[in-house]
Design a protein around this nucleic acid. Structure first.
Lengths: 333, 333
DNA sequence: CTGAAAGCGCTTACAG
DNA sequence: CTGAAAGCGCTTACAG
């Protein structure tokens, strides 16, 4: 495990020169730089991140804060953001919060992240004003995916518009009794998307002259299990819906499964539409509103890297477009 | 952003005493300890990981090396391992390798991880002997999920046995012409499971007196897209299979979709079985060999923490059981 | 029980 | 173009 001193001795220069050469700084002769580079490679020298971080004040790490890493959207975004971040020399520190409020407080307190990372990427969480203040005071730039936060760079889809697109599609097919499968009413994670999607659902119904009916709004919690339970509840209604809009593809697929298990035809007896367009959706022949997930990860990484290199640059708020993908799970009433 | 000096001054003690008090070390009076703790909390003091790491030689971080973080198995294992690791005070550094050979070499070189993390958790990769040597020489303990490596703690299922269970189920139903959908023949990631599952498939066929037929072995690459293509190929055979064993649920679901799209009934015309038992599988009424994914993540974390606290303890190799889950995608010939 | 001091391995003005 | 030296914020023997 060689240190900078080993490299310096082998090269016959000071450790300061080694440091400069390795960082591509000026004030090192080309000949010296080459010699140092060669020797460093020979010795398999890698600077100690702890020492470099202590001396420079930079950790060269980015914290990724998400509710769950094992959910399609978050995993996909992290995956596509990682490549850029790593190429820029940053390591990724993972903080998946689960539903633990304490864990969340810790991650957002700023004190933990402040000394560990240079920047933070927040996924799918709606931070409270206190959390925004705490994380912002940590000093480093923050980028957030899924919701716009003043002062932070953000990337998201227009959740309300996406929901309206989905409902509009069902309305256009002649449906009037349209169910909704969404998130928890009191989401401990304060995710942003669910509330916007619910609002979009209601708005588009109203725009079509349909009065929203609370009975038609079921809780799916963005899980397969929850989606099944929600669909069970909707089908048990005295006056069940003829179409269902689920706020995620996973819940939509669960809904289709439940409908079929009950002996109903999809879309013959009931139409189902989701949001996401994930890999599996094609297998269910699911009509859905597609959101570009790779693009969101890449954009978030780019915004973060931009903020890191130009701290005073304004922090953009980017909205990426969604698009209706009509497959076979929806049909005219 | 308070430092240990701020705490020391406020408490009227030396920084050495603050450090001891905060770490729960002996040789600090209870009264002093309490005072320091209170003041540290007031000041929201958190020790700088860089400084602590440089001084102590411990990073309090664990590196997670996996091919893809956005695949069901890896995401689920990371998720369940994270909780324990974090509770023990370790941060998680994510290294997802993709298919980039250079990136893989870097992660496995030992030099990168050595100075960044105290231990490494490898997921679903079959390291070469050189990689084992390199990572082992880094000094810290390594745990690996998905394959046994001498000298490393490991957690896995018996992939060959799981495959045999799946094939045996089909054979018991009377099938003789059984297709296989598996990984790439020349997997750049050297994943371990695919080869073992293929071997199990062939072995069980032989045990049933059936000669393996290369034509029935299709490449699905563990993706939905690949699974669909593989099934297309199998169904296009002059003498197509009456049953298909896919090495993952995702590929199995893709196979079912393709069969149905072709107008076939599942399981009426063709039976399909997978491995995993992930959340979605119930939606496809998929018969599968279940593997306990949470347990694997938890066990891997425990083995790693155990090795961290007792470096000389032997490194166990744990095999967790799989079980056949019979649903509705398989039927007698 | 407590403190002074060395040292961890770098980066970065400052001199030359 | 290069080096000596200070300093980053801790931990940890060593004294007392």
């Amino acid at each position: 495990m060689s240190t900078i001193k080993d490299v310096a001795e082998a090269a016959g220069v000071s450790i300061a020169t080694v440091s400069r050469a390795l960082h591509g700084l000026p004030r090192v002769s080309e000949a010296t730089r080459q010699r140092v580079l060669t020797i460093a490679a020979d010795l398999q020298y890698v600077a100690s991140p702890s020492a470099a971080g202590l001396a420079s004040g930079q950790t060269m790490a980015v914290g990724v804060v998400a509710p769950f890493i094992n959910r399609w959207f978050f995993a996909a975004v992290v995956h596509s953001a990682e490549e850029l971040l790593r190429a820029a020399g940053y390591d990724l520190l993972l903080y998946s919060l689960g539903t633990d409020a304490d864990e969340r407080r810790r991650a957002f307190s700023g004190n933990v992240l402040r000394k560990r990372v240079d920047a933070v990427l927040v996924l799918g969480l709606q931070p409270t004003p206190e959390e925004v203040a705490a994380l912002s005071s940590a000093g480093g730039p923050v980028a957030i995916v899924g919701v716009a936060v003043p002062g932070w760079a953000s990337v998201r889809i227009d959740d309300e518009a996406a929901a309206r697109t989905a409902v509009r599609h069902l309305v256009d097919l002649g449906h009037r009794r349209i169910g909704y499968i969404g998130g928890e009413p009191h989401d401990p994670l304060h995710s942003a998307a669910p509330a916007d999607r619910l609002r979009g659902y209601r708005e588009e119904l109203r725009a079509a002259g349909i009065a929203p009916d609370q009975q038609l709004e079921a809780v799916g919690g963005f899980t397969v299990r929850g989606g099944m339970d929600a669909m069970d509840a909707l089908l048990a209604l005295a006056d069940p819906p003829t179409a269902v809009f689920a706020a995620s593809d996973e819940m939509a697929m669960a809904a289709i499964h439940v409908a079929r298990r009950t002996g109903m035809q999809v879309p013959g007896d009931i139409s189902v539409i989701g949001i996401d367009n994930q890999e599996m959706s094609e297998l269910f022949d699911l009509t859905t509103v597609a959101q570009p997930v790779d693009a969101q990860g890449v954009l978030a990484a780019e915004l973060l890297l931009g903020a890191l290199s130009e701290p005073n640059r304004p922090r953009p708020s980017v909205t990426v477009p969604t698009s209706l993908i009509v497959r076979g799970s929806t049909a005219p009433l």
